[in-house]
């Protein structure tokens, strides 16, 4: 693991919860592993741009549990590049150098074993909520009756009303509801890895807290590994079991920090003193990293 500074321990006065320790390695392949990954866009042309350089990190595959890793960093530091590489989406994938491994296998392209939720609403406008949620099952050839039953189940699980909302079209939904549909659509396929690129970035603060609770609840249910990009330090601390702080020019991982798990609902947990402590600490660290990056000659 790169760049884990020694003073990363979240333990400090006021911090009630101890940071968890990595479980002993039991030989399981890592959920996600980056090995010396560099991505250069338009290499060899005048528009050459280094998005990330020599990024290596490992997210372990915790049996029957999974982990939420959050990615924090300034705009343009390569967060989306990292996530889309795991998803296998072009043009971020394939890496210019290095390799990306998911559950022990090198990523060769996109697939439904790695679900993704985007910040921009990507509900298929021509499909109802139910049609959107069952899209992946339809592609797999699951019979209509069965996939619709499963779809309704997931519509309920993400907090929508299967009776009233299933037949609605995306343009009749609020932003929060659209993201609920996007989450249901991804989770119905039971992916082992869930990739989320600022999924709640466009939502208002109250909706955002609801969505955080929803995510934690569902994540416990599906026991998947989550990679979650956010701009909000609070969100990174609340959701993250592990926070990757990224820095820019070139994009790289500046720090990897273990976080204590928050087990209270978002509204309660985010007013507790230990939480504020944690946020302030991370904020300071973020500022230090950004200051170091913007220092002349660096």
């Amino acid at each position: 693991m790169t760049g884990a500074a020694p003073d990363n321990s979240p333990e400090s006065p006021g911090s009630v919860r101890p940071a968890p320790v990595d479980p002993p390695g039991d030989g399981r392949p890592a959920a996600v592993e980056f090995r010396g990954v560099t991505k250069i866009y338009n290499e060899g042309t005048s528009r050459e741009a280094v998005a990330i350089r020599d990024v290596s990190f490992t997210i372990p595959d915790l049996p029957d549990k999974g982990e939420i890793s959050t990615f924090l960093g300034p705009s343009g530091c390569g967060k989306s590049t990292v996530l889309r590489m795991v998803a296998g989406l072009e043009p971020q994938f394939p890496p210019t150098r290095g390799s990306v491994h998911v559950l022990g296998r090198e990523v060769v392209g996109p697939g439904s074993d790695r679900g993704m939720v985007f910040q921009d609403y990507t509900s298929f406008d021509n499909r109802t909520v139910l049609g959107n949620v069952t899209f992946g099952l339809e592609c797999r050839g699951v019979p209509k009756r069965r996939r619709e039953a499963e779809g309704r189940e997931w519509i309920a699980r993400v907090g929508l009303d299967p009776r009233r909302d299933a037949a609605k079209y995306p343009h009749e939904l609020s932003g929060g509801m659209r993201q609920r549909v996007a989450i249901a659509r991804t989770l119905v396929l039971r992916p082992r890895i869930i990739l989320m690129d600022e999924p709640f970035g466009a939502l208002d603060p109250a909706t955002r807290l609801d969505m955080q609770d929803l995510l934690v609840r569902l994540w416990r249910e599906v026991e998947a590994t989550v990679m979650f990009i956010t701009h909000s330090v609070e969100e990174a601390v609340y959701l993250g079991d592990r926070v990757f702080v990224m820095a820019t020019t070139p994009g790289r991982i500046a720090a990897e920090i273990r976080m204590p798990a928050a087990d209270a609902p978002a509204r309660e947990a985010q007013v507790e003193p230990w939480f504020h402590e944690q946020v302030n600490q991370l904020q300071a660290q973020l500022e230090a990293i950004e200051a170091a990056a913007s220092r002349p000659g660096n």
Binding site: R84, A87, G88, L89, P110, G111, S112, R114, G115, M116, F118, D120, T122, F124, D125, N126, R127, F135, G136, E138, C139, R140, R185, T186, L189, L195
Partner: peptide, 25 residues
């Protein structure tokens, strides 16, 4: 493109992307 990306991460094949995503949208 984000609709194509979404469909890819949901496991759609190239042909399914044409018939179920690009065509209808």
């Amino acid at each position: 493109q984000r609709y194509v990306d979404t469909a890819l991460t949901l496991g759609a094949s190239r042909w399914q992307i044409i018939t179920k995503v690009l065509g209808p949208l």
